[in-house]
C-alpha cells in the first residue's frame, strides 16, 4: 500500500471514529434537551449524563486529530479548503465552542439550566450538518479556482439538492446512532423506562436514515456521475451496509442482543463510510486535488506514521482503561459508583 493510501485511510478511520462517538454524544445532548422540555422521565437524563460526563473531551480530540492529520499528510488541502471554507468553517467553530462549553457549564455548574441544555443540545445537532459542507464541496462544482484564488460558490451550495440531502442524512444518522447506543446503555443499566424510550427512538429514526441514504445515491448520480459510477463498482460495500442495518433493526425490534445490534449499526456506517471514501479516491477535491499531488514529502510522511504508531501504543491501552471504568463497568453504568 502506498503512503498516500495509508495516510488517507488512517485519517478516514479517525473521522469514522469521530462520526460514531460524536453522533452518540450529539444525539444524547439533543435527547437530553428534548426530554427536559417534554418533561419525560428525569431518570433518562441522569443516564445520559452518566455516559457523557467522562468521555466528551475525548470525542472532540478525534476531530482535532483529523484536521491536524490532513494538513500533515496533505498540506495542499490547507490551501484549497482553508481559503474556501472561511465562513462555513467559522460557523462550525462557533457551534463546537458553544456545544463544548455549555455542556461543561451545565454539567459541572451548580444547577441544570434549561438555556444551557438548549444551547448544547441544538448546537450538537447543527455541528454535523455544518461539517457535511466539507464533504459536499469535495464533490466539486462548488468552488471557483482562478488566478490563484479559491472562492466558495455559496449560491450553488445553498441551492443544491445534493448538499441538502447530505445535511438531512447527517442529522438523522446522528439521532439513529445515538438512540441505538443509548438503547443498549439503558438496557445494561437496567433502566427499563429509558430503555423503552430509546428503543422507540431508534426504531423511529431507522426509516428516515435509510431513506436519506437512498436520496444521497440519487442526488450524487446527478451531481457527480464519475463518483457515482465508482460507487456502483463498489456497490457490494453499500449492500453490506444495508444488510447490517436490517440486522440491527431486527435485533432491536425483537429486543434481542442489543450490544450486537449497536455493533451492527457501527458496521453499517463503517461499510458505507469506507465505500464512499474508497470510491471518492484518488480525489480529495474533484477535480483539483488528488491524494497523489497533494501529498506531503516522504520524510515527513514517515515521521508522521511513526508518531502515529507510537501514539496509538499509548492511547489504545488508555482508551481501554477508560472504557473498562465507565462503559463496561456494570456498577458505574447502573449509577452505583
Amino acid at each position: 500500500m502506498s503512503y498516500e493510501i495509508l495516510g488517507i485511510s488512517v485519517l478516514w478511520f479517525f473521522l469514522y471514529g469521530y462520526l460514531i462517538v460524536a453522533s452518540v454524544d450529539f444525539g444524547a445532548g439533543f435527547f437530553h434537551f428534548y426530554n427536559k422540555i417534554s418533561h419525560q422521565d428525569y431518570q433518562v437524563n441522569k443516564l445520559i449524563q452518566r455516559y457523557l460526563s467522562p468521555v466528551w473531551e475525548v470525542t472532540n480530540v478525534f476531530l482535532v486529530f483529523f484536521f491536524v492529520g490532513i494538513i500533515g499528510f496533505f498540506p495542499d488541502t490547507a490551501y484549497y479548503y482553508g481559503t474556501a471554507l472561511l465562513i462555513p468553517g467559522s460557523i462550525s467553530i462557533v457551534l463546537i465552542a458553544i456545544r463544548g462549553s455549555y455542556y461543561a457549564f451545565n454539567t459541572y455548574g451548580s444547577k441544570d439550566s434549561k438555556i444551557y441544555s438548549f444551547l448544547y443540545g441544538m448546537s450538537g445537532l447543527l455541528i454535523p450538518a455544518s461539517f457535511t459542507i466539507v464533504l459536499t464541496i469535495s464533490e466539486g462544482g462548488y468552488l471557483d479556482v482562478s488566478d490563484g484564488n479559491v472562492t466558495l460558490l455559496l449560491g450553488e451550495l445553498l441551492t443544491s439538492t445534493y448538499s441538502w440531502s447530505v445535511v438531512v442524512l447527517a442529522i438523522v444518522s446522528v439521532l439513529f446512532i445515538s438512540a441505538a447506543f443509548l438503547t443498549y446503555y439503558a438496557y445494561k443499566a437496567g433502566d427499563d423506562a429509558s430503555y423503552t424510550l430509546f428503543r422507540r427512538y431508534t426504531l423511529w429514526w431507522a426509516f428516515p436514515t435509510i431513506l436519506a441514504s437512498i436520496l444521497i445515491f440519487f442526488s450524487i448520480s446527478r451531481h457527480n456521475p464519475e463518483h457515482f459510477s465508482n460507487m456502483v463498482d463498489m456497490s457490494w460495500m453499500f449492500i453490506l451496509s444495508l444488510l447490517f442495518f436490517l440486522g440491527a433493526v431486527y435485533l432491536i425490534y425483537s429486543k434481542k442482543q442489543l450490544g450486537l445490534a449497536f455493533v451492527l449499526v457501527m458496521l453499517q456506517f463503517f461499510s458505507a463510510w469506507f465505500g464512499y471514501g474508497a470510491s471518492h479516491l484518488p480525489y480529495l477535491l474533484y477535480p483539483h486535488l488528488t491524494v497523489n499531488d497533494g501529498f506531503v514529502n516522504e520524510t515527513m510522511a514517515i515521521a508522521l506514521i511513526l508518531a502515529f504508531i507510537a501514539g496509538l501504543l499509548l492511547l489504545i491501552p488508555s482508551l481501554v482503561f477508560l472504557m473498562r471504568l465507565f462503559l463496561f463497568d456494570a456498577d458505574y453504568v447502573r449509577g452505583k459508583r
Binding site: 475525548v58 486529530f65 491536524v68
Partner: peptide, 27 residues
C-alpha cells in the same frame, strides 16, 4: 499552513496525541 504542513506538522500531530492522553485521564 501549506508550507508548515510540509515542515512542522510533526509536533502539531504529537500535540494532539499528548492532549488526547491528558483528556482520557482527566475524565
Amino acid at each position: 499552513m501549506q508550507l508548515a504542513g510540509q515542515t512542522i506538522s510533526l509536533p502539531l500531530f504529537m500535540e494532539v496525541f499528548a492532549f488526547f492522553f491528558e483528556a482520557i485521564f482527566l475524565g
